[in-house]
Amino acid sequence: MGTKMESLILAQPNSPLQYPIQGFVVAPLAKSVIPGKTLSFTVKKGVLSVEDVLDGDQVEGQGQSNLTISSSSRTHLNDLLSRVTYTSTIYHVKTKDLGNVSTTLFVHYRSSVPVLYDPGTGKTTILVTITTKTFLRYDELNILINSIRQFYPKIKIIIADDSLETQNVTGYNLEHYIMPPAQGWFAGRNLAISQVTTKYILWVDDDYIFNNNTRIESFVEIMEKVPELDVVSKILESFPFLTLSSLVTFHQPLPNFKDCFLVDGVVNNFLGRTGTVRRAGFDPYLKRVGHSEFFMDGLGQLLVASCKGLSIGQQRHREYSDYTVKNYAGGCYNLSESVIFYLSILVIK
């Protein structure tokens, strides 16, 4: 008695499946004609071919176990299907082969609108906004602003401020956003970055200072040449945060940039693409110590590089007043959630 595999079943090539491989855009709830026709054949114990292939015939895998034929014309595809041959490559009187015919459809239901930026002259000023968060450190903040203006007189500065008693901060092309008191570092980051309209964000803490080696334009140049790169910062020589040490392990050099290396995280000043930095986000639950958490959330989302060539100095620490010490390092920013975060990282590791 014969088996089902011995019964000949023919699928006539007059009704081929019609699906594109990729690039088919469909508006939601709208009808669209599917363009293109592609079929793939796979066998295990033989090879496939299309006889009498002509110039212009779209055939891949001639004489192999995987064959793909495609055409924008149904008539042409039917003709190709009628010339597909199977050649056995195994001699065995009872050997059977099972062939598969498949097609793949990738449908993109709605294309996104590209974000456009002003490509005008003065690239650094046009493309970059400097953002920072401050709490009770107005002296340091003013030093930072003055140093920025020394080297970049027209660049935009955005400040998020959750001080208990706020002071007025003004200046050219400067925005000062007052928050409810003691909302925290990441809440401030979210606010400041939400107001950025340029292609790139340069994040700095309020106790940093620009110097002669601060060359934002060198990092803008890297980001412009490597469109898939999301964040870039300086080479980290020491590890100020417990969990950051593992995040800045050099994986491999950034192609075409010998002084740059791909890492998972960088230091507390960095240039980032506005869109991808926003998508990674900042969890406002972490009020004080959260820099590492941002890059932990960005694992698998952000392509990060650490490079030589950008130096943003840190101001010398001064003696704070009892009021500042009490409210900054004391009760306003509860450290418990940050301690729990770091302990959880240690457990994971």
Rank of each mutant, 00 (worst) to 15 (best):
D97Y: 05
K96S: 08
T89K: 09
D118Y: 00
S112P: 09
R83C: 01
L80N: 03
Y109N: 14
T103G: 13
L105S: 10
L105G: 04
P114K: 13
D79P: 07
D79M: 13
N100T: 02
I90G: 02
N100Y: 10
R110V: 07
V84G: 07
Y86E: 01
L81Q: 07
L98H: 07
H92D: 15
D97I: 05
K96P: 02
S102V: 07
T87F: 01
D118M: 00
H108A: 15
D97L: 02
V101I: 12
F106Q: 15
P114C: 04
H92W: 06
H108T: 15
K94V: 07
L98T: 13
T87I: 06
R110Y: 13
L105E: 10
L98W: 06
S82R: 11
S88C: 03
V93Q: 09
T104E: 04
V107Q: 12
S82W: 05
H92S: 12
S111R: 11
R83N: 00
L105N: 11
L81E: 02
L80I: 07
L81V: 01
Y117R: 03
V115N: 13
D79R: 14
Y117C: 04
L98K: 09
T104C: 08
H92V: 00
T104K: 11
Y117E: 02
V107P: 04
S112L: 13
L80S: 07
T85Q: 06
K96F: 13
S88V: 05
L105Y: 08
G99A: 02
V93A: 13
V113W: 05
V93N: 06
L116K: 13
V113H: 06
S88A: 09
Y109E: 14
T104Q: 08
T95W: 03
L98A: 04
Y109D: 09
T95M: 09
N100I: 02
S82T: 06
K96V: 09
L98E: 08
R110M: 09
V84M: 05
F106P: 14
L80D: 02
Y91R: 10
L81S: 01
V101W: 02
V113L: 14
R110I: 09
Y109W: 05
H92N: 14
L98Q: 05
K96D: 04
K96A: 08
V84Y: 08
V84S: 05
F106R: 15
T103M: 07
V93T: 07
P114I: 05
V84F: 05
V101S: 00
R83I: 00
F106V: 15
S111W: 05
R83K: 09
K94C: 04
L80A: 08
F106S: 15
Y91N: 10
S102M: 04
V113Q: 10
V107S: 10
S112R: 12
R110K: 14
V113K: 11
V107L: 13
V93S: 13
N100L: 14
K96Q: 11
R83S: 00
T85V: 10
D118P: 03
L116H: 12
T87M: 06
Y117L: 03
P114M: 08
K94H: 10
T103H: 07
Y86S: 00
D118H: 00
R110Q: 12
Y117I: 03
V113E: 12
T85G: 00
P114Q: 11
Y86V: 01
H108I: 15
L81D: 00
L116G: 03
P114D: 08
S112Q: 11
V93I: 12
N100M: 11
Y86R: 04
K94R: 09
V113Y: 11
S102Q: 07
S88G: 03
R83A: 01
V113D: 09
T104R: 10
